[in-house]
Write a protein that binds this DNA or RNA. Structure first.
Lengths: 132, 132
DNA sequence: TTCAATGCAAAGCTTTTGCATAAAG
DNA sequence: CTTTATGCAAAAGCTTTGCATTGAA
């Protein structure tokens, strides 16, 4: 049913390293395709980005309709259990918040609203420190 | 510089009423275009949706890359100050949560992280009561 | 009478897909 | 040797834009 085997290819590795070496920065599929540093076909870029995203190695953001999706490296930190992503609606930047308060939120949502929060997908929008 | 005048047209009114009469439901531009109930050109549908969204009458959501943006009527409620949107990653449904706990979140984000939450844009993803 | 708004079709972009070929294991 | 992954080009969507025309005030 699912994927039988998984081959490790140069292309996918290169793409992951590209993001890995630029933590905190966001790139679109088009950015990678245009990059002279990467030698990867267009279709493969899209396929790799989808795959890396669903494997949890990258995070995907969609700025607006008609605009390209942006991807960012997901570094794994010990505090992941209480991580949440914040995105600034003005500068477009994102940052990870590591705070035990996330536990409070999860507990409240589950207890009072029967809602199981998915911290991977949730993004809190607002104005960051600099833009405020 | 900005918009000089604003004309009130049948088309835009019809679109707003369409959403107004279906609170809580989400529709894409394509849905409206296909709807036999609305007689509005494609370009006008897109222009109206953009405008109504930026006027705050509708909210826009983008399910994923390559997929159409979804719009939903924004009814103004007294409890809006503490509203937050929840979206289920399994069934795709959304619901508004009205809870004073939102105040706690805002206070914490601002106080401890210098982040001003935008409740209009923020969506908390997870599993809803039924899908959990 | 003005000038914003509409409608149509064309154009623009991002993303997906089909299929032969290349490469991993 | 078998099966997955790549690459190219074509196709598919969704959204935007140009321009003549309509219609609101």
């Amino acid at each position: 049913m699912g994927r039988e085997k998984t081959y490790r290819t140069r292309q996918r590795e290169d793409i992951l390293r590209f993001f890995e070496s630029r933590p905190g920065q966001m790139f679109s599929a088009g950015d990678l395709i245009a990059s002279r540093e990467l030698k990867v076909g267009k279709a493969t870029v899209y396929r790799s980005l989808s795959r890396l995203t669903q494997e949890g190695r990258l995070s995907r953001f969609i700025p607006g309709p008609g605009s390209a999706a942006l991807y960012q490296y997901n570094r794994e930190k010990p505090g992941d259990a209480h991580r949440c992503r914040l995105a600034c609606v003005k500068c477009g930047g994102t940052e990870d918040m590591y705070c035990s308060f996330m536990g409070e939120i999860e507990r409240h949502m589950k207890g009072d609203h029967g809602f199981l929060v998915d911290k991977e997908k949730t993004v809190i929008y607002g104005l960051c420190k600099s833009c405020k």
